[in-house]
Amino acid sequence: MPYFAILLLSLFALLLGIVASLSMGHYPIAATELFKILGSVVGLDFTVDPIAHNIVLDIRMPRLIAGIIIGAALAVSGAAFQSIFVNPLVSPGLLGVLAGAAFGAALGMILWESWLAVQLSTLLFALLAVGFTLFLAYSNKGGSMVLMLVIGGIISSSLFTSLLSVTKYVADPYDKLPAIVYWLMGSLAMADTQVYWLAVPMLLGVVILSSMGRLIDIASLGDEEARGLGVNVARLRIIVILAATVISAMTVVIGGLIGWIGLIIPHIVRFITGPSNRRLLPVTAIIGAAFLVCADLLSRNAMSVEIPVGIITSLIGVPVFIFVLKRAKGAW
C-alpha cells in the first residue's frame, strides 16, 4: 500500500476514535449535537445544550487530548528506542524513565497535597532516573555503549522500583496508598484542561522524533556501520533519548503508567509500513494515539464503573504481542 494511503487511513481511524470518544459515554451526545458544539467553539452561531457543551469541552475534550498525546508519545518513543538500541523488544521504559516517574509521583502524593507539586516531582524523578542511567553508562566507557545503557537502565529501574515500594510501604493505607496504586494502573480520568499546556511540548517532541526516521534507520544498523554512513550515532542517540525521555515522563505526569503501547504499536505498524522509520514513526504516532483513544473509550464504557486504561492496554497488548512474535519470523 502506498505510504500516502496508509497515512490517510490511519488519520481516518484516529478521526473515528475522536468522534466516538467525544460522543459516547454515560451521557450520550448525538453526532449532530457534537458538531454544533464544536462549531460554536469556533464562533459559529448554533444553539447548544449547555450540559452537553460542558461535558464535551470540559470533561471529554481534555481526556481526548490526553489520550491522543500519550498514545502518540509512548508509541513513537518505543519505535525510536527499538531502532537506536538495535533491539525490537525494547520499550520506552528501558532507561528507567517510567520507574523514576512512578516513584516521583508516589513520593509527591505522600509529601504534598498540591497536584502541581506531584506533577513536578514526577517529572523531576523521571529525568533523574534517566540521568542516573546515562551517568552509569558514560562513566563505564569501553565496550558497547548500547549494552552499557541497557545495563544502566536495569540498575536505575530497579533502584527506583525499590524506592517506589518503600513509599508504598510507608504510605497511609486508607488514603494515600489507594491513590498511589490507582495512579500506577494508568488512567486518563485525572486529565483536565491544563493538559493542553503539556500537549504542546509533547507534540513538539513527537514531531521531532517522527521526522528523524532517516537517521534513526541508519542508527539501527549499529554504531560502526552508521559511522561509515556519516551518522554521528553518539549525538543522535542523545537527541533521541532526551526527546523520548521528556515526552515519556510527561505521559506519566498526565496519566500514570500506561503500559504496552510503546512495545506493541510499533510492531503492529511495521506489518503495514515495513521497518523503515521514515514511514514507521509518523504512522506509529497516529496509530498509537488512535489506539489509546479507543482503549480509553472502552475503559469508560465497558462496565458501569471505569476500568483503568492501563489494565485495558495490557489485556489487549499481551495477546497481540504473542501474535506479533509468531508472525515476525526473523525479520522485524
Binding site: S83, V86, G228
Partner: peptide, 15 residues
C-alpha cells in the same frame, strides 16, 4: 570513505 562491514546484525528487515 565508505565502509563495507563483515556482517550486518540489524534485526530490522529493510528492503
Amino acid at each position: 570513505v565508505a565502509y563495507v562491514p563483515q556482517t550486518n546484525t540489524s534485526p530490522f528487515g529493510y528492503t
